[in-house]
Amino acid sequence: MSGTSGRVAAVSSNGEYTFTKPNRDSITLLPGLGVEGDVHAGVTVKHRSRVAQDPTQPNLRQVHLIHEELFGEVAEKGFEVTAGQLGENVTTAGIDLLGLPTGALLHIGAEAVVEVTGLRNPCLQIDAFQDGLLKQVVGRDEDGAIVRKAGVMSVVRSGGEIRPGDTITVELPEGPHRPLEKV
Rank of each mutant, 00 (worst) to 15 (best):
residue 1 M to V: 14
residue 2 S to I: 03
residue 2 S to K: 06
residue 2 S to H: 12
residue 2 S to D: 15
residue 2 S to T: 15
residue 3 G to A: 09
residue 4 T to I: 00
residue 4 T to L: 09
residue 6 G to P: 07
residue 7 R to F: 09
residue 9 A to C: 02
residue 11 V to P: 03
residue 11 V to F: 04
residue 12 S to N: 15
residue 13 S to G: 15
residue 13 S to E: 07
residue 15 G to A: 14
residue 16 E to P: 00
residue 18 T to L: 06
residue 21 K to S: 07
residue 22 P to N: 03
residue 22 P to G: 06
residue 22 P to M: 10
residue 22 P to V: 07
residue 23 N to H: 02
residue 24 R to T: 04
residue 25 D to N: 15
residue 26 S to E: 14
residue 30 L to W: 02
residue 32 G to Y: 03
residue 32 G to T: 01
residue 33 L to K: 12
residue 33 L to T: 09
residue 33 L to M: 12
residue 36 E to K: 12
residue 37 G to M: 00
residue 38 D to H: 08
residue 38 D to T: 07
residue 42 G to K: 00
residue 42 G to P: 10
residue 45 V to Q: 04
residue 45 V to P: 02
residue 46 K to Y: 02
residue 48 R to E: 10
residue 50 R to A: 14
residue 51 V to I: 15
residue 52 A to L: 11
residue 55 P to L: 08
residue 56 T to E: 14
residue 57 Q to G: 06
residue 58 P to H: 05
residue 59 N to L: 10
residue 60 L to R: 07
residue 60 L to D: 02
residue 63 V to L: 09
residue 64 H to I: 00
residue 64 H to G: 04
residue 65 L to V: 07
residue 72 G to F: 02
residue 75 A to K: 15
residue 75 A to I: 00
residue 77 K to I: 01
residue 78 G to M: 00
residue 85 Q to N: 09
residue 86 L to G: 10
residue 87 G to R: 02
residue 88 E to M: 03
residue 89 N to K: 06
residue 90 V to C: 04
residue 90 V to E: 00
residue 92 T to V: 14
residue 95 I to W: 06
residue 96 D to I: 00
residue 97 L to F: 06
residue 99 G to C: 07
residue 102 T to D: 10
residue 103 G to Q: 08
residue 105 L to C: 13
residue 106 L to H: 01
residue 107 H to L: 12
residue 109 G to Q: 05
residue 113 V to M: 08
residue 113 V to S: 06
residue 115 E to I: 08
residue 118 G to K: 04
residue 119 L to F: 06
residue 120 R to W: 13
residue 121 N to C: 08
residue 123 C to P: 08
residue 124 L to S: 15
residue 126 I to K: 02
residue 128 A to L: 10
residue 128 A to H: 10
residue 134 L to R: 11
residue 135 K to S: 07
residue 135 K to W: 10
residue 138 V to H: 01
residue 139 G to P: 07
residue 139 G to F: 11
residue 140 R to H: 13
residue 141 D to R: 00
residue 145 A to K: 15
residue 145 A to G: 08
residue 147 V to Q: 12
residue 147 V to S: 05
residue 147 V to N: 01
residue 147 V to F: 01
residue 148 R to L: 12
residue 150 A to H: 04
residue 150 A to T: 03
residue 153 M to W: 02
residue 154 S to T: 13
residue 154 S to D: 06
residue 155 V to A: 02
residue 155 V to D: 06
residue 155 V to Q: 11
residue 160 G to V: 09
residue 160 G to Y: 10
residue 161 E to Y: 04
residue 162 I to A: 00
residue 162 I to S: 04
residue 162 I to L: 12
residue 163 R to H: 12
residue 164 P to F: 06
residue 164 P to S: 12
residue 165 G to L: 08
residue 165 G to A: 12
residue 170 V to P: 06
residue 175 G to C: 14
residue 176 P to K: 13
residue 177 H to P: 01
residue 181 E to L: 11
residue 182 K to T: 05
residue 182 K to N: 08
